[in-house]
Amino acid sequence: MSILTRTDGYGPTTARESRGVRERPMSRLVAFVIMGAFTLYFLVPIWWLAVASTKSRGQFTSSAGLWFADFHLWDNLTFLFTYGGGVYLRWLGNAVIYAGVGALLGTLLASMCGYALAKYLFRGRDLLFNIILGGVLVPVTALALPLFLIFSAVDMTNTYWSVFLPSLVSPFGVYLARIYAAASVPDELLEAARLDGSGEVRTFFTVSVRLMAPALVTIFLFQFVTIWNNFFLPLVMLSDDRLYPVTLGLYAWNSQTNAVPELRTAVIVGAFVAIVPLILAFLGLQRFWRGGLAAGGVKA
């Protein structure tokens, strides 16, 4: 969601425009206060998590929540990465495979599909698109159980594939790719490419993909977050905990804290470590994505 919100207010262009209009200081102040409140709202839990990760078990309940006590981060990390034979690292790796590779391939499929829907005329195109659009409305959670029954019919539950394959599909990505391809890939350019003797596939990868880059990054981020957060599918599919993604692993640990209270520490530190890849993905990709938008702006 946050990505969409940010696209609405994309930085450079609004700033440039607003210089002309000259906004009043009052409205600027209000905007700052609101944005500040939101920032605080989103950052305080992360701050809490960061602080809690450094505490020993006793201090966790006895010291103030938002400030540091004695520094135990290294002990906690050691505990996290060694508990249960170091299974946490595996979970992290699994999550990166499911979400990273899944989102990459998912983006490729969605963009090809959306591009085809936008740029080729064929019978049933609108029907197909509408059906895919309908898929946007079906929550992934509702699909978990039917998928489980299908995968068990072919004996593929409790495998990497059972979580990976369903993650490749993104109706919303197709939708976004179609809209963006229609708007940003001019037919004339495709015509020119064809005249120059480029095949359709080559045109797609060399010309269209570049023009669609900002949309692709958005689709990738969306898909990455969707897979990363899709908790129910692995919960239903996987019984071997070595195949768990990190979200499910932490959940399983958390559900055992009544019996093994030491796991509280592992859950908290584990949650903190688990958001690092997400932050990296966002910070890393934001650059591309802003560049893409600016390029679009210049062209327009």
Partner: peptide, 12 residues
């Protein structure tokens, strides 16, 4: 295989 505790998911 280790799962989440019973009511947290393993029973289902």
């Amino acid at each position: 295989n280790t799962g989440p505790s019973g009511n947290a998911g393993t029973y289902q």
